[in-house]
């Protein structure tokens, strides 16, 4: 029995070795926000080219970049999707493993919207200050920095409904949380003058910036660690709750959700691409230059991803909810020239 088992183990190892040596499809891993777009592109790529359909996996921006940076060779991924820019630390980790030439591709922008139950209270308009006033632990009342006394939205803005404050925000492991903190909470912190008051109160500027990002942990701000479906379910169950969603998700569920304007601007692909709508972020993918020419179809995949017919304003990605990048031509040129990050070439 033991001899047979060893033999079968050897056979498995042999099969594994042969498959690792020959890989003919592009492998992609990373952000779950980019996943829908990448899978739409991979599908169309498989249909239009003789190359096999690329394999797309999710797992989060950080996990994707970590796998990407593990080394050069067919057993490592070729492309990392990310809903944020690659960090200095990650570039260093990449370089340590021999991944020195990375091509950065910005595919477009993703809008982040605030929405509530369609039949729920009239949350039609927010400003960053409203969100800050509702969720921050310390806010400005009558020119003084005090512990947040607000219980209802109407406590600080009479235009908002008199409902208990309840917000479902992305958990800390999500890239979306960063955008929410920087573009909404921190912006509200500055706009209400709370940041100035903190600095005046003896805090260093850096500390004040950090303190500005905090949200209360008394149950009014609920971290959602799952995906938008979970946020939607929470909104369904709580008529007075507001939730943070991606634009694409909202557009697919307009029968259940009502979107609110931010600082008077309604989130649409147009307002996001012009930069009028303030809460948006760029989406990226990163290509390992050393794999171009080794993995068949890798460069073609990258070029196809940002081609006008795919990532342009009328392409399937925009249709799904991506806000197309006005500077798409530059991106296309950069890929054609295989221009690497930080390099002069």
């Amino acid at each position: 029995m033991s001899v047979k088992l060893t033999a079968s183990a050897l056979a498995i190892a042999a099969v594994a070795a042969t498959s690792a040596a020959a890989r003919d499809q592009v492998q992609v891993a990373g952000s779950s926000t980019v996943l829908p777009y990448a899978s739409i592109v991979a599908e169309a790529f498989g249909e239009n080219f003789d190359f096999p359909t690329p394999v797309v996996e999710s797992g989060g921006s950080s996990a994707g970049l970590k796998r990407f940076c593990q080394g050069v060779g067919t057993e490592h991924t070729d492309v990392a999707n990310a809903s944020r820019k690659i960090r200095e630390k990650e570039i260093k980790a990449c370089a340590e493993n021999g991944v020195t030439e990375i091509i950065e591709v910005r595919i477009g922008y993703d809008g982040i919207v605030f929405a509530s139950q369609y039949e729920g209270p009239a949350y039609n308009a927010f400003t960053q200050s409203d969100i800050f006033n509702a969720l921050a632990p310390k806010v400005m009342v009558d020119g003084k920095l005090v512990d947040n006394p607000h219980k209802k939205w109407s406590d600080f803005n009479s235009d908002l409904p008199s409902e208990d404050i309840l917000a479902f925000i992305p958990g800390t492991k999500h890239g979306t949380r960063e955008v929410f903190e920087e573009k909404v909470v921190a912006a509200g912190c500055e706009a209400t003058g709370a940041m100035e008051a903190m600095i005046a109160g003896g805090m260093s500027e850096d500390d004040a910036e950090d303190a500005c990002l905090a949200v209360m942990s008394d149950g009014r701000a609920v971290d959602i660690d799952g995906d938008y479906t979970e946020t939607l379910a929470s909104i369904d169950a709580n008529a007075n709750g507001i939730g943070v969603f991606g634009l694409a998700f909202y557009e697919n569920n307009t029968d259940k959700l009502k979107v609110a304007t931010m600082a008077g601007v309604e989130p649409t692909t147009e307002t996001i691409s012009t930069g009028e709508y303030p809460v948006s972020r760029p989406l990226f993918f990163y290509v390992k230059k050393a794999h171009i020419g080794v993995i068949p179809g890798l460069k073609e995949y990258a070029e196809f991803f940002v081609a006008d017919e795919i990532a342009g304003p009328d392409g399937p990605l925009a249709e799904y909810g991506l806000v197309s990048d006005p500077a798409l031509v530059e991106t296309q040129d950069a890929i054609a020239d295989e221009k690497i990050m930080g390099g002069d070439s």
Partner: peptide
């Protein structure tokens, strides 16, 4: 990693069925 993956390629053969 068997979640979050788009199962769009049918495997061709036993080795690819096990390893792809």
């Amino acid at each position: 990693g068997m979640v979050g993956y788009i199962a769009s390629n049918a495997p061709d053969g036993i080795a690819s069925g096990l390893l792809d």
